[in-house]
Structures are given as structure tokens and as C-alpha cells.
Design a protein around this nucleic acid. Structure first.
Lengths: 123, 123
DNA sequence: TTCGATGTTCTTGAAACGTCGAACAAGTTA
DNA sequence: TAACTTGTTCGACGTTTCAAGAACATCGAA
């Protein structure tokens, strides 16, 4: 039985500008992108956002469907990573411009990483 | 009597990233931005989009409210211009990245200028 | 003043969006 | 097997958005 309906990620050349812009027009999703901006893969659990899990799941799905992130499943948990290379290849400069702008205004600051999980952690 | 409720344009530092991203996540509005990309001021009437005038008015309002364009009134007609300098100052690289991406995919091609009005014209 | 041209606003309806809570599915652990 | 964990899906709700048509406001011309 196929697992939790393995999400379909758009192919690089299927990534749509409108979809990406739409995905990055919500503060929480911009916050998620910022948290993932260092290129590190993060687990669901590390992500702290002021919404319940189903809503977070929704936002992560929008990002995934738009081609902004990639989700990987390992056992019972998921890992997300920014598709920086793909986005840069498709729309040069766009992601950086958005991330810089978000940093400038501190957009999406409500999203963060779980305490102490800024990279290393809890064995 | 104040005219057609002169639209309020956000101040440069009031321009919100989320609003700009939202404004540019619609094909018609991206098309409008592309048409205005050369920096020339255009009159309402020059803009050709596959929607009725009230809808076009709506889209231009969204762009204006977000700070993407500036509207000027002259007599009975309006002129729009891209706020390129302001946007570049506030979010460096963002507008260019979006316009380039839009060009690559030909997003917003449904929007154009009225015949023969590609720059010079009618007396 | 009456018309016509140009845009805005209002109203209405359909679709999309963000949010939550509850139910579900799959893997892990006891 | 029975919990528990993790994440998805679904239904519901209210808000926002897009679209069109009709009414209105302003200006210029007759």
C-alpha cells in the first residue's frame, strides 16, 4: 500500500512562476523558506510555526507543489529542503531576491526552528 | 470635490513584500508589469487585457495598492507607470528577477498594448 | 445642459485561501 | 497486539480574490 500518497514534485521545467509567487506570498511560507535558506534539510518536527499541524502540512504542501521545496520521507517522519538549485536554474535571482527582501523586513519571523535544533541536536 | 478618490500609493518604506508577491502572483498583473517594464508611462486605454474594464481597474488597483505601480490622473484619463526605482530601492533585484522569469516563460502574454501604440504614436 | 469618453465603485456570485479539528494511515515502540 | 508518533486528508467556516455588469463621477465637447 503506497504510503501517505508520496507527494508529486514538479519537474524543474514544470515549475511555474505564478505558482512560486503565490507560494511565497504568505508570511508563514516565506518564513519556512527563510528557515530552510541555509540549504540544510529539516525535519517537520524542527519547524516551529504558529499554526496547528494540519495547517502547517497545508503550507508545506503549497511550497512543495509549487516546486519551492522537496519533501523526503524516512520511516514515519518527513524532511524538507529548499530546491535552491532548481529554482536558481529556472528563475535566476528570484529566490535570493525574495529571501533578501524577507530578511530586510523580517517577514516570516513567526517561523523558527525548535529550540537548540539550529543544526545539531538531541542525539 | 475630490476626484475619483485619488488612490493612495504606499510610501516607499511602506511597500510590503507580501503585498508585492501577492500582486505579482496573477498572470494578468504580471502581464501588466511586463508591458510597463520599459519604464514608459501608459494610459489606461493603451492596455489590452482579456477582461472587462472593471476587472482591469481591479487589477491595476491591486498593483497600485501594493506599490508596484503609480497612477496619475490627467483630466479624464489615467496614466500608469511602474515604480521601478522604489521597488529596486526597497527590494533589490526582485522586480528584475520576476520580469526576467516572466519573459522566460512568457507569463502574462495575454496583456499587450493597443495596436500601433508600442511607443510612438497618434500625434 | 446634454452627451460621450474614461475610470471607479458597488453588488453579486463563484472560486480560492487560511485555519482548525477530527479522522485516518503508516511506522515505531512497548 | 496495543499504544504512540508523525504527517496527510477531509469537512467546515469565514475571508479574500477574481470576474462581470450596472450605476456613478468627472471631464471635455457640442
Amino acid at each position: 500500500m503506497v504510503v501517505m500518497r508520496q507527494a508529486r514534485h514538479p519537474d524543474v521545467d514544470e515549475i511555474s512562476l505564478i505558482a512560486v509567487m503565490g507560494a511565497l506570498s504568505d508570511p508563514i511560507r516565506v518564513g519556512l523558506a527563510r528557515v530552510l535558506a541555509d540549504g540544510r534539510e529539516r525535519s517537520w518536527g524542527e519547524l516551529r510555526a504558529p499554526v496547528v499541524k494540519s495547517t502547517l502540512s497545508h503550507h508545506l504542501r503549497v511550497l512543495r507543489d509549487a516546486g519551492v521545496t522537496r519533501t523526503r520521507q524516512e520511516g514515519t517522519r518527513c524532511f524538507v529542503v529548499l530546491r535552491r538549485r532548481d529554482l536558481d536554474a529556472r528563475f535566476p535571482g528570484l529566490l535570493d531576491a525574495v529571501l533578501n527582501a524577507a530578511h530586510t523586513d523580517d517577514v516570516g519571523a513567526q517561523v523558527s526552528l525548535a529550540d537548540g535544533q539550529s543544526g545539531l541536536l538531541h542525539g
